[in-house]
Design a binder for these strands. Structure first.
Lengths: 235, 235
DNA sequence: GCTACTACTTTGTGATCACAAACATTAGAT
DNA sequence: ATCTAATGTTTGTGATCACAAAGTAGTAGC
């Protein structure tokens, strides 16, 4: 029956306040983000519906939405799967993150008030704690929250959806990398970013954000490392 | 029955080779892109299904996909509409275009070969013709093709979907602006871009692309102009 | 005349069914 | 033994139906 590896998805409790489609969407999104689904593995509507114990309809809609966000890929065969990664594509995604996120940071800078600064500081402190506890999942989650909190300071923000799309595409492979290398320690560039924010220095902020992104992925950026994790994606 | 303005959508012939959902998606996408649907106008599944003479199902999927691309907005009420524009948001969209597209251009530059250069030259020539004929629709369509041809030279391109999302969000308002101002003539920055490409000068190319985008929207960028077209969106 | 409650309509959501294309498997011919 | 043709199964697509939430209108009460 299961020709491929059985899909294992972490199911969260379904809140009755949200629609089934939204719940399925969030569940699948997390599964992709945390690399629970192997790239190249064909996803069928009915199989997922069976796993999550819902009708095929919400799954259909969630899959289409994730495909529109480039988290999934619909081939000509109408088959849906997590897109496979290549070294060049990985590099392009990282460079795109740097270009867009440093832009978003600079655009958000003028809007950062005391309250937002407070929020960023507390997130930074939490990240330090998580780093001391060596909790990789927590680190990457808080790191996302930090970046999101920074960019959303701009009330006319339009780039966050684009940035989240890039995170989604990189997600599975960041995870695979962090799983393999638990000895990585990343210099805390957030302190530099905080200093730049307090000085309202847009250029310094862009430098700090760029460095943060570059170092966050540097441990996966060596050609050998990349090669190995890409090979892991092949059947 | 029609409490709001009746929706008028240009329907193209449906090719049997594509699925109904794809056809509906393309039709609605064009309608949004060309400003055929007023921002703020509530879109209902059944109404659109009736107009396009299909069942509600393909419309549902197409709407969700367009919403995922930020072309439509789903409010808390579950109502779907073309998002309203504000002057600040318009500005953010333009700045985002400049940041991402100049990045994409620089990243594509090393991959441009003779064939691609030829293609860009012929597109440039077509734009000149359309400009001579004062065919605004043709100009903006060809302009898009020019940019797309440039960015897709990079075989590991990952930013084009993001760029298209920005085009979609700006689309309706570019159209409104060009309709109101038929006296605008834009300096042909494509020649500068072509020169930069032939010299393989990434920095000059970024300058040219930025200028092209900035001038393409400059006629709508004056506060009065913007104010008027945003007012037009209100009921 | 204005507000609040109720009945009615509209609309999105989700399940089920029918169907055709894609896929896998098996049988037959060279 | 290998390639091809035929058969059976799986899967996405699209239509229809049931239902609950949101919206609308109409009426009673102050």
């Amino acid at each position: 029956m299961d020709k491929k590896s059985p899909i294992k998805i972490t199911l969260t409790e379904r809140n009755d306040a949200v629609t089934i489609t939204q719940w399925v969407y969030q569940t699948l999104r997390n599964a992709v983000m945390y690399g629970e689904i192997l790239p190249g593995r064909a996803l069928t509507i009915r199989e997922l519906a069976g796993i999550m114990d819902v009708s095929p309809m919400p799954v259909r809609e969630a899959l289409r939405q994730l495909a529109a966000e480039n988290a999934l890929e619909i081939q000509g065969n109408r088959r849906v799967m997590v897109p496979k990664m290549t070294a060049m594509k990985f590099n392009e995604l990282c460079e795109a993150r740097i270009a867009i996120e440093s832009h978003a940071a600079a655009r958000a800078l003028p809007y950062i008030d005391g309250e937002r600064l407070e929020q960023l500081h507390s997130l930074d402190a939490l990240i330090d704690q998580a780093q001391a506890a060596d909790n990789l999942e927590q680190i990457s989650l808080l790191n996302q929250n930090f970046h999101r909190a920074l960019y959303t300071a701009n009330p006319h923000q339009v780039t966050l959806p684009l940035i989240e799309s890039l995170w989604l595409q990189l997600g599975p492979f960041m995870r695979l990398a962090t799983n393999e290398l638990d000895e990585h320690y990343l210099v805390d560039r957030h302190n530099e970013a905080m200093a730049a924010i307090e000085k309202k220095d847009a250029y310094a902020l862009q430098i700090a954000i760029s460095a943060d992104i570059r170092e966050g992925i540097a441990f996966a950026g060596t050609p050998e490392m990349l090669h190995s994790l890409i090979e892991n994606s092949e059947p």
